[in-house]
Amino acid sequence: MTAAAELLHVAQPSMPQQIRNLERELGVGQLVDQSALPPIESVDGEGAVAENH
């Protein structure tokens, strides 16, 4: 999350909220499994990436 926050120029603590906002905007479930260490892309996240590339 820290690397993603730095890349996006946002504060690391705001990343979970940013991800939830994106999930709502895309109309998908969970994009990232944040309970995993390190966080990993979920099945919905993999599908969203495949659809948008």
Score class of each variant (00 low, 15 high):
Met1Gln: 06
Met1Ile: 06
Met1Phe: 07
Met1Tyr: 03
Met1Gly: 09
Thr2Cys: 04
Thr2His: 12
Ala3Lys: 10
Ala3Met: 04
Ala3Tyr: 07
Ala4Trp: 03
Ala5Thr: 06
Glu6Arg: 12
Glu6Tyr: 08
Leu7Arg: 14
Leu7Gly: 06
Leu7Ile: 09
His9Ile: 06
Val10Asp: 05
Val10Met: 08
Val10Lys: 05
Ala11Met: 09
Ala11Ile: 07
Ala11Val: 07
Gln12Ile: 04
Gln12Ala: 15
Pro13Val: 11
Pro13Asp: 10
Ser14Thr: 11
Ser14Asp: 08
Ser14His: 07
Met15Asp: 00
Met15Glu: 02
Met15Pro: 01
Met15Lys: 01
Pro16Asn: 10
Pro16Trp: 08
Pro16Tyr: 08
Gln17Arg: 09
Gln17Ile: 06
Gln17Asp: 05
Gln18Gly: 02
Ile19Leu: 15
Ile19Tyr: 01
Arg20Lys: 15
Arg20Leu: 07
Arg20His: 09
Arg20Ser: 10
Asn21Ala: 14
Asn21Thr: 14
Asn21Ile: 10
Asn21Leu: 13
Asn21Cys: 05
Leu22Tyr: 01
Leu22Thr: 03
Leu22Asn: 01
Glu23Ile: 02
Glu23Phe: 02
Glu23Pro: 00
Arg24Met: 13
Arg24Cys: 04
Glu25Lys: 10
Glu25Ala: 12
Glu25Phe: 06
Gly27Pro: 04
Val28Pro: 00
Gly29His: 11
Gly29Asn: 14
Gly29Arg: 09
Gly29Phe: 11
Gly29Ser: 13
Leu31Glu: 01
Leu31His: 01
Val32Thr: 03
Val32His: 00
Val32Phe: 01
Val32Gln: 00
Val32Ala: 02
Asp33Trp: 03
Asp33Arg: 06
Gln34Lys: 04
Ser35Met: 02
Ala36Glu: 12
Ala36Asp: 08
Ala36Thr: 10
Ala36His: 08
Ala36Leu: 13
Leu37Val: 14
Leu37Tyr: 12
Pro38Lys: 13
Pro38Leu: 10
Ile40Lys: 15
Ile40His: 09
Glu41Ser: 14
Glu41Pro: 06
Glu41Phe: 13
Ser42Phe: 02
Val43Met: 12
Asp44Val: 04
Asp44Leu: 04
Gly45Tyr: 02
Gly45Cys: 09
Gly45Val: 03
Glu46Thr: 07
Glu46Tyr: 07
Glu46Ser: 11
Gly47Arg: 15
Gly47Cys: 09
Ala48His: 01
Ala48Thr: 02
Val49Thr: 11
Val49Leu: 12
Val49Ile: 15
Ala50Pro: 00
Ala50Asp: 14
Ala50Trp: 11
Ala50Arg: 15
Glu51Ala: 13
Glu51Ile: 05
Glu51His: 04
His53Met: 05
